[in-house]
Simulated assay, not measured.
Amino acid sequence: MLAHPSGDYAITEMYSVPDDAWYLELDLVRGQRALVTAIVPDEDPAREPTVCFDPRGPHLDIPYEVMRWFMDRVDDEIRTSRAWMRQRPELVEVIQGLRQEHMGAIDDADFPHVLAQVRAAVPEADLPAVIEAAFGRTLDGP
């Protein structure tokens, strides 16, 4: 949980495996109530990030400074979680396939075999970016 300097608001971040998405909630600390939820998919380039407000809750004014703070954090999450999606379309396709097949991680024993497959599919200059985006590691190791 990330607390706002005022102490009245906080951001809770969690990952939903079934949704393949990060959920960021702007919470009202007093009352322990989620006010706004941002959903940042990180596996499917076709799914766009969204922001949802609680329609069942009573009307509540959220100060601009707090909303800006929350949206800045959402923007950071979009930038880091979806950076690989800004690659060329053919690389995005390879990265997405690797992420789905290997769930974003690969052990050292399987890495040489997978690296050889990726080398056959993408130009050598793009190899470091693909490996980083798919597995969060460098060509040399974790």
Rank of each mutant, 00 (worst) to 15 (best):
L2Q: 11
S6Q: 05
Y9T: 01
Y9E: 00
I11D: 01
I11S: 00
I11A: 00
M14W: 07
V17I: 11
V17Y: 03
V17Q: 10
P18C: 14
D20A: 10
W22K: 01
W22C: 00
Y23V: 00
E25L: 03
L26S: 00
D27T: 01
L28G: 02
V29Q: 06
V29N: 09
R30G: 07
A34H: 04
L35R: 02
L35V: 03
V36G: 02
V36K: 07
A38C: 00
D42N: 14
D42R: 09
D42Q: 09
D42V: 04
E43M: 14
T50L: 15
T50G: 15
F53D: 12
R56F: 03
G57T: 06
P58G: 15
H59D: 12
I62G: 09
V66R: 04
M67D: 06
R68I: 05
R68M: 09
M71D: 02
V74L: 03
V74A: 09
D76H: 11
I78E: 13
S81A: 15
A83C: 08
A83T: 06
R86N: 14
Q87D: 05
R88V: 11
V92Q: 05
V94H: 00
I95V: 14
H102C: 06
H102T: 03
G104C: 09
G104R: 06
I106R: 03
D107Q: 10
A109I: 08
A109S: 12
A109L: 14
D110V: 03
F111V: 01
E124Q: 12
A125S: 07
A125M: 08
D126W: 06
D126I: 07
L127W: 08
L127M: 12
V130L: 12
I131R: 04
E132Y: 07
A134Y: 06
L139E: 11
L139V: 10
D140C: 08
G141P: 01
G141L: 07
